[in-house]
């Protein structure tokens, strides 16, 4: 963007407003301009949440699409493996349940949380908070949703699971007949939508909106 000379009389042309913030990784006080899409801390280089205006519509739409795809991704088997004509299928819940069933409840529960529970809770939180915002529901609901989002986000490990599927393909392809089935392709699409939704869901700016609405009432 070209720098514009400051002319107070003209409409809409003024230097970008800045916001005071502190870097969460090195505690440096920062002045972040309004219009920077990917601000970084000048001292340690940590990415900061941008101050661009936030609209809950976008993450809402993406999360809804992801949630719809999550239905076939979880109901249909993602992989099928057969040996001597006997087929076995893998679904996310089924795999974790199998582990719990044979006594590995701790590993099974971990797999269940990281591949199924955390992503679904995260999607529900995005949809819930954005809808609550649009429908003017009580602001305390949005606040608890946003706080919970923070804690759930780090346990979503679908990208790691995707790599695990690839490793399994390589390990099993010589043993019997292995194929990736409908559920897996729905899963990949869901993963893409979920990632984009998470990027567009800027919780800090959502808090700003929340605060402004609360003050206005």
């Amino acid at each position: 963007m070209q720098a514009t000379e400051l002319t107070p009389a003209s409409h809409g042309v003024c230097p970008p407003a800045t916001h005071l913030s502190a870097c969460l990784e090195c505690d440096q006080l920062l002045d972040i301009p309004d219009d920077q899409p990917r601000p970084r801390c000048p001292r340690c280089g940590a990415a900061q949440a941008p101050f661009q205006p936030f609209d809950p519509t976008r993450p809402l739409a993406l999360a809804l699409a992801a949630l719809i795809l999550a239905i076939p991704a979880n109901l249909y088997p993602q992989m099928a493996f057969s040996l001597l004509g006997r087929p076995n299928a893998y679904t996310l819940a089924g795999g974790a349940w199998h582990l719990i069933d044979v006594g590995f409840w701790w590993v099974g529960a971990l797999v269940l949380v990281c591949t199924l529970v955390a992503p679904l809770v995260l999607l529900s939180l995005i949809i819930g908070t954005c809808l609550a915002w649009k429908l003017h529901l009580p602001s305390s609901w949005i606040a608890s949703g946003l706080k919970l989002y923070h804690q759930v986000a780090s346990w979503v490990m679908l990208d790691v699971y995707l790599l695990a599927v690839i490793v399994s393909v390589v390990k099993l392809k010589d043993m019997g007949s292995f194929e990736l089935t409908t559920g897996f392709f729905c899963f990949v699409l869901m993963l893409v939508l979920l990632s984009v939704a998470m990027v567009s869901f800027n919780t800090e700016r959502f808090w700003d909106l929340w605060e402004a609405r609360r003050a206005g009432h």
Partner: peptide, 26 residues
């Protein structure tokens, strides 16, 4: 990314369970 091996185990154990023929156990 260290969770990788656990997900692989979950997949293998579920897919390769053919009783006495062939099975993978955790």
């Amino acid at each position: 990314w260290s969770m990788l091996d656990l997900f692989v185990i979950s997949i293998l154990v579920t897919l390769v369970s053919f009783g006495q023929f062939a099975s993978i156990e955790a």
